[in-house]
Structure formats: C-alpha cells, structure tokens
Amino acid sequence: MADFQPPQSITTTKNNLPIAIVHHTPIFNLSSFPWILEIVNPIDASDPLFSIHGPSARAVIVLGRSPLKSEHLDQYPSVEIVIGTSAGIDHIDLAECRRRNIKVTGAGDAFSEDAADYAVALLLDVLRRVSAADRYVRNRLWPVNGEYPLGNKLGGKRVGIVGLGSIGMMVGKRLEPFGCTIAYTSRNKKSQIPYVFYSTVLELATVSDALILCCALTDKTHHVVNREVLTAMGKKGILVNIGRGAIVDEKELVKLLVEGEFGGAGLDVYEKEPEVPKELFTMDNVVLSPHKAVLTPESFEALRNVVIGNLKAFFSNKPLLSEVNPTN
C-alpha cells in the first residue's frame, strides 16, 4: 500500500472511468502497474471509501500472485470478472469463481516467450555449468586450478516437456534446432504436434534425460514430480522448473541431489518461496533463480496490453482477450 494513493477522483468520478477493485497483498502494489490508473478508478478493501464504492464494483484486478479466495470474493459481491496479471493463476480460486459465475482472465501469452527462454537458459546453464563456471572465474580459480571440468552437451538429449500449453510449445520450438528429441505429457494428446505424447509424467520421465515443468499448479499436478519420477530419469537426470514449486516434491529432489542420485536442477520456483533449501547453495550442478522467469520490461508491456484489452472488452461487452478456460 505504501506506494499507492487512491486518486481523489474516486469520490467524484469526474474522469468517468469505471471503478475496479485492486486485490493485492503488501508485496504486490500498483507501483508496478501504474497504467491501471489510465483505465479504471482503483480501490482496495483497506480504503475508507471501500464501503461506498466497493460493493458495487463489477471488476477485480488481482495484482501479481496475491491469493484470491472465497472469503475475499464475499467482500466483492457485485464482481463479474477477475482480471489476473501473472503467468500462472493457481492463486485464484477458479472453482469458486465458476460457482459464482465470475469470469476469469489470465495474462494470455504476455509472459510465454520470456518463460520459454528462461527454461532453455536454465537447461543450458545446468548442462554447460554456466553459473558455476562464472563463479569459478570470479573466485579467481582459473589461473590456480586450470581447465574447468567438462560440461554436458545439449544436442541429442531427450527432453520431456510437462504441460504443452503455449509456454511448453515455445520451449519445444526453441530446443529443436539444438538437436534435442522432444516428447511431452499433457492433460490431453494434442493433434498435429510432431512430439511423442506420454499419458503420465512417470512414463515421460522414463524416456527423458531432462524434464521441463511448464504446467499449471492444480490438485492433479501437486507433487506430480516425486521420487519415483526423478529416479526414472536416472543418475544423470536433469529437472528444470519454471512452473510452480509445489509441482515437485522438493524434499525428495534435494535428498536425491545430496545423495548424488540425480544429475542436476535449474529452479526458478520453490515450495516455500522465498525459502530455498540450504543444501542446494553449495552445489555446482544446480542453478537457482528467485522466481524471475517472466520479469522483463518487455513482458510487462505485453501484460499491460492484455489487461487493458480485457478491461475495455469487459466494460464494453465485447469478447475477452484471454479468458481462462472455465473447465480448468
């Protein structure tokens, strides 16, 4: 809230912009989304005027990954649409929205390219030891210890993509020219996709050297990457997670890495962010990133266009740009 002052105009609505509830936890605030003020009069539940304007507001904008649960929706009785602003929307209670007949929009493809780029970056980093080798040079070890140990080649690797949505597709497209063999698992087999489909993550892991997690976090994908899946990839297996931390049984992953029973990991997400298992801090076969796969000025600009487009469409009764499939 520190950076956000509600515009005075809310009481007079002299700018004629519609009112929208801005739903957020303290770490997400309007300073990262200043353009929201161009399209709506924002108000949040802590605002003294909320009791006047909040109950009639038709739209709620969820900033970042702020959780939106049933009890929040109880406070927003007139809401017809929830506008998400992040790559995943597991923090929004979709079942509850559906029950209340509230539409939900996501970020569409705004973040997809950045997320896919990041997955390839983490995979290349783990295989070729980019971050560990950079550390070696910065610690002035090159002149002392000589040649850095050999890394592994990306070409020829069998890469399994878990979740072949827009991000997963873009990961596949990017990895093709490196000479990787690509397979995937997804809720449904996709038609006209050249990659081999496996119906379970375990089957996919069995035929993969590396798994890249691009799926949403749902009840079905929670801890779907467990010990059995990880060991199915073998001692040289690599895991890249740009989805959500809880897709992986993190304790088991850490245990296998500590025991030397798993090859390496590139992680942008964790089960209890910003907590990262300390055991990983000393490993050269892991790359650790603070949930940043999508945060570039370029993707924020794309997000702005999607959010503004959805709000404009909603308030003028036109088709939404990126409505989340209500069966999700």
Partner: peptide, 20 residues
Amino acid sequence: DLAIGLMLATLRKICECDRY
C-alpha cells in the same frame, strides 16, 4: 550452444540471480 547460453545468461542475468 554456448553462444546462446551466454546470450540468455547475460540478458536474463541468470548468474546474478543464482548469486542472489
């Protein structure tokens, strides 16, 4: 491969993220 790895690591600040 390493040229692309370096482009990604440099623009997306992967090594700095890891240090952080």
